[in-house]
Design a protein around this nucleic acid. Sequence first.
DNA 1: CCGACGGGCCGGAGCGCTCTCGGATCACAT
DNA 2: ATGTGATCCGAGAGCGCTCCGGCCCGTCGG
Lengths: 346, 346
Amino acid sequence: MSETVPRPTLEAVAARAGVSRATVSRVVNGSDGVREPLAERVRQAVEELGYVPNQAARSLVTKRHDAIAVIVAEPETRVFSDPFFARQLRGISKELTAHDNQLVLLLTEGRDDHARVGRYLAGGHVDGALVFSLHIDDPLPELIQRAGLPAVFGGRPDWGGGRGGVVYVDSDNRGGARDAVRHLLGLGRSRVAHITGALDQTSAVDRLDGFRDVMVGADPGLVVEGDFTAAGGERAMRELLDHCPGLDAVFAANDLTAAGALRVLREHGRRVPDDVAVVGFDDMLPIAEQTDPPLTTVRQDIEGMGRLMARLLLRDLDRDTTADAAVGGSPSSVILPTTLVRRASA
Amino acid sequence: MSETVPRPTLEAVAARAGVSRATVSRVVNGSDGVREPLAERVRQAVEELGYVPNQAARSLVTKRHDAIAVIVAEPETRVFSDPFFARQLRGISKELTAHDNQLVLLLTEGRDDHARVGRYLAGGHVDGALVFSLHIDDPLPELIQRAGLPAVFGGRPDWGGGRGGVVYVDSDNRGGARDAVRHLLGLGRSRVAHITGALDQTSAVDRLDGFRDVMVGADPGLVVEGDFTAAGGERAMRELLDHCPGLDAVFAANDLTAAGALRVLREHGRRVPDDVAVVGFDDMLPIAEQTDPPLTTVRQDIEGMGRLMARLLLRDLDRDTTADAAVGGSPSSVILPTTLVRRASA
DNA sequence: CCGACGGGCCGGAGCGCTCTCGGATCACAT
DNA sequence: ATGTGATCCGAGAGCGCTCCGGCCCGTCGG
């Protein structure tokens, strides 16, 4: 019924083309040293038989799998509540498939999942790993290293990336924040507040740092901690309005936060942007376009981040393969630029 | 430097434990026929050497890969603009890892990608496929069948699923729509309008059907086509207000559409829910909670859908393996119930 | 006490592929 | 005609695993 027809093997193709396995292998893998007429005969046999190489057998000898693990720590619900994840994945996918690599997705649930992931990585199924949202006490890097796999991290890791040549890709959160605040100042605002993100995430810390870079010596009361959610934005905005009723601008750590802030501002009768200008971060659609008024925000190239992560990893991979020595040294981390998107809120 | 230590093989473990490969294999795979003292010695050797079986070698002989492909058609940008995708993936992932299966993600870009996917599926890397948003002219089912792989589809396929025992999992879009409309009627509304989704998607068609089930013989002018976007919702709402200014309720095909409709209603000075009650679909967070007023909507169990898809597929797989004959017949499609979530808009 | 029987364990074959060698072939120069 | 490379191709080994057949040894009936 669902009985699979046994797929043709190299040998079958060889027999049909009247050559040896080795020759077929050469043709299939595009190495030279096979004269044209013969090669053509082989190609035809491949065609006729619908031959597709058996990856398992190939991996067994090459020790290459042409597969990359993408590891996402599930507790980061943020990853799931916004389209970031999907966009990044899309970038990764594009880059990987362009190089004939497969994407194996590992969503880790909790603590105990690490054992599973470790076993998997050690099991030699993949050639490398792409890892998201790493925390300081995360055993993942250790596991990956023990498995002898190269890895690239998404977002600056907690410990600053200073350790053992960790490679990561991140947006220029700090620079983006500076741009946002400068834009606000450029609008003639002077009492600029900041609602931070969840400060256990480096992106939130970096954005706060960027804010401070520009607002040196500002009233510390103008900074209130949020958590990247709309509810957090509302709460923080209320607090802000309470303590600093004179503020004329708000830089929110992300668009969701900004949306919450906007609601509270409206509730309190403040007009945006006339009374208070608001800038968000992420350019998270459709949120950013749907707020009232539409949000001025800092856009980052999410898909590009994903693609870049994959590219760095792949480069590392065939550096190992092709070169005898390190050709260009290990790859190093990359910070991607952001751009300010002007809409109506500031 | 990044030189990998050669991983221990079965043979190495066997040598250390003073037994044969076969015995180690038995112990590792949990088959019986090895007496306890020996088994223990083997287990210890495994431990000491940190042995992990080589999957490639194993697959080569078992023809099993313990991996499932998840195929998502990229053009469905809807998939990427809302968290559906991630949620479903999460459900799938949970179920798969619980059964020690890996998740290989295939995002297909366009037409020409099908060749790649086909090759991959035929390449014998995976044991089955989970497929999303299939269209009527999609070559995917053909490819999958040719590769001899079992598959489960997400969402009712275009051609109605009547063909060749296609198995799919879907929400009860029609029933959910009925609930929504009945709720509106229960509120005493009588001129209920519907803004549809993109009607080339079965979910949109089903929701429309559900609407019609309840509103038999209603003014056809009360149904306007949307496209699942907020902009589409705005456009449709304007049209509706133009042609049927007397309407007192709107059932929107999804929450984004509802959000657009809400904006236009406010713009026209209609109060929600006093003048016009609005119900959405999806309970897409954070949108549904953030609209003004918060949206009454129909919730579907996205994660459950994913999990169920995976479960059906896995069941199908080891039905092939274990049973001599069909134990319980082929699995069949499942429709998951929806629930109405009451908030302020209706 | 011997032969039959059976469960526990081992050796070997082989999954489909790659890759190293060495043999065959051919052009060209000797 | 023969040597000489360079070039092309094939045979064979083996990657790490599973599984089959058979050997060995313990057990029991006669």
